[in-house]
Design a protein around this nucleic acid. Structure first.
Length: 200
DNA sequence: TCTTCGATTGTCT
DNA sequence: GACAATCGAAGAA
């Protein structure tokens, strides 16, 4: 059920594509929240001029260079925590940024975390989903292949290629071409997900 | 519906 | 000291 380390130990684009439809699980004090992953972005190595590792390893981006299947959580714009899943073999800095989720369990707690926002906007942004699932600095470098950290991924639903959308990544206009335009943002419309019966 | 803009802090040069 | 893989409120249309 829980995704094994092998799942992450592959090229980042491959992992990003397959993360669509998987379930992100967050357990706090025995309370379980979960959501389908519906939007991601891939960041691939030091050559990728949009990747945090473009200038080599620093204290901040060190998790990118570590083992696949761990989280990389960092603060951006001084106020938003963004969560990534580290991929590729150890020593190669690549990760998938989670940008959007469709909540399944723990809706009450998620609603409380998101204030008065309507359900549509609970997890439709990388900073929002972190707020919704209470992901922050303490969740950096969590082992996603174990339940111990209270943050991990499980199998979800199959997402057919026909409903996968692609576009350039968001918020990286500082990056030169071709990286700025690579279609490494993948997402599905929550309405298009095949949710009829098959989910548990 | 779309656009603009202020908020706020860890990290790197 | 500058800037960042963003969000949400406010104002215009």
């Amino acid at each position: 059920m829980i995704l094994p380390r092998d799942f992450y130990d592959r090229p980042v684009l491959e992992v990003a594509r397959e993360l669509l439809g998987k379930r992100l699980i967050r357990v706090i004090d025995g309370q379980r929240m979960s959501a389908y992953i519906i939007e991601v972005e891939a960041y691939d190595g030091e050559a990728d001029q949009a990747c945090h590792a473009r200038s080599g390893m620093t204290r901040r981006n060190a998790p990118l260079y570590g083992s696949p299947g761990f989280s990389y959580v960092y603060l951006t714009y001084g106020m938003h925590w963004l969560m990534n899943c580290v991929t590729g073999s150890e020593g190669y800095p690549a990760a998938v940024l989670l940008r959007g989720l469709l909540p399944i369990e723990g809706l009450e707690r998620i609603a409380r975390n998101r204030g008065k926002q309507p359900p549509k906007h609970w997890c439709d942004g990388p900073g929002k989903l972190s707020q919704a699932l209470e992901i922050g600095k303490a969740q950096n470098q969590i082992n996603l292949c174990s339940k111990d950290g209270g943050l991990y991924l499980e199998e979800g639903i199959a997402v057919p290629e026909t409903i996968v959308n692609r576009s350039p990544r968001i918020g990286i206009n500082y990056a030169p071409e071709p990286w700025r335009s690579l279609p490494w943002r993948l997402w599905v419309d929550s309405d298009a997900l095949p949710l009829n019966g098959g989910s548990e």
